[in-house]
């Protein structure tokens, strides 16, 4: 790792100020992607501004059907929250599938979505749940937040403070983890809202990162069963294709996992 200067922020405002004063700084949250990247010298920020100990950005708030999760809440905290599990178990299940237990003890929801790794789990949930991404500057709808591979609508000095969503009437997540890394080769989050509308968020598969599948959304809005997906098509040319799985394989996974997500939803 190249030299860097560490700063611990105690508020989001202080963090933004520290970053503005840095030559080429980066925000650090759980560090489970950034630090390995720095160890391999693929990133070399002059300064790291640690957000993980900002108390105002920690914790889960449940207000009826409205869920708010602070940006530096760890995956382990989301996975093990019995209060959250009672109202929306799928998000807890998803958090419990990220990486491994040690990663989950450090990694945070804000860090995951800010990084927007095309194989990360949370972006699929954010899209499907129509989540709002709250930042130091504004509130961004998930549809507008995820721009491209590792690219989001965030400005350089903008910090995610929390995410928020309304619990749908049904939701579920199914994932085919890469056998070594546990990243999603494909992961599909499905939600059915009170008004009958459906949102399907797909991660790990799209060549431009997380995406929604409108064909599946309308099929599931008709009938909420895995069988309803049988005539849906997923464009293999729009999928990632790599040593682990080609586009056609991933396109098939999208359909299979969407069905499993529906079957496991409640």
């Amino acid at each position: 790792m190249y030299e860097t200067k560490y700063h611990k922020a105690s508020s989001a405002d202080e963090a933004a100020r520290l970053l503005a004063a840095a030559e080429d700084g980066k925000f650090l949250s759980g560090g489970q992607t950034l630090l390995p990247t720095m160890k391999q010298r693929l990133a070399a920020p002059t300064d790291l501004v640690d957000l993980s100990q900002i108390d105002a950005m920690k914790g889960i708030t449940i207000d009826g059907k409205k869920i708010t999760i602070g940006a530096v809440t760890t995956h382990a905290e989301v996975a093990s929250s019995s209060e959250l599990r009672d109202v929306c178990h799928s998000i807890c299940d998803l958090a419990g599938m990220i990486g491994d237990p040690h990663v989950r003890n450090m990694g945070t929801i804000g860090g995951s979505i800010a990084n927007n790794d095309p194989a990360a789990d949370y972006p699929a949930a954010m899209m499907s749940l129509n989540a709002e991404i709250m930042t130091t500057k504004r509130t961004i709808a998930a549809d507008d937040f995820f721009v491209d591979l590792f690219e989001t609508a965030l400005e350089d000095d903008e910090i995610i403070t929390a995410i928020s969503y309304t619990v749908p009437s049904k939701c579920g997540y199914a994932k085919f983890p890469h056998p070594a890394s546990r990243y999603a080769m494909t992961g599909v989050f499905v939600s059915k809202n009170v008004d009958g509308t459906v949102r399907v968020g797909v991660t790990g598969a799209g060549a431009s990162g997380v995406f929604r599948h409108e064909g599946m959304e309308s099929a599931l809005a008709g009938t909420w069963t895995a069988d309803a997906l049988k005539d849906c098509t997923v464009d293999a040319n729009a999928m990632l294709s790599d040593i682990h799985a080609d586009g056609a394989y991933r396109a098939n996974l999208v359909k299979v996992l969407a069905g499993r997500a529906v079957a496991s939803s409640c």
Binding site: Y6, K8, K39, P101, M106
Partner: peptide, 15 residues
């Protein structure tokens, strides 16, 4: 009390 990878945490963070 939490199991973490000591290779993926800065020493200064553990203050």
């Amino acid at each position: 009390g939490k199991a973490i990878k000591a290779c993926t945490m800065l020493a200064v963070r553990a203050e």
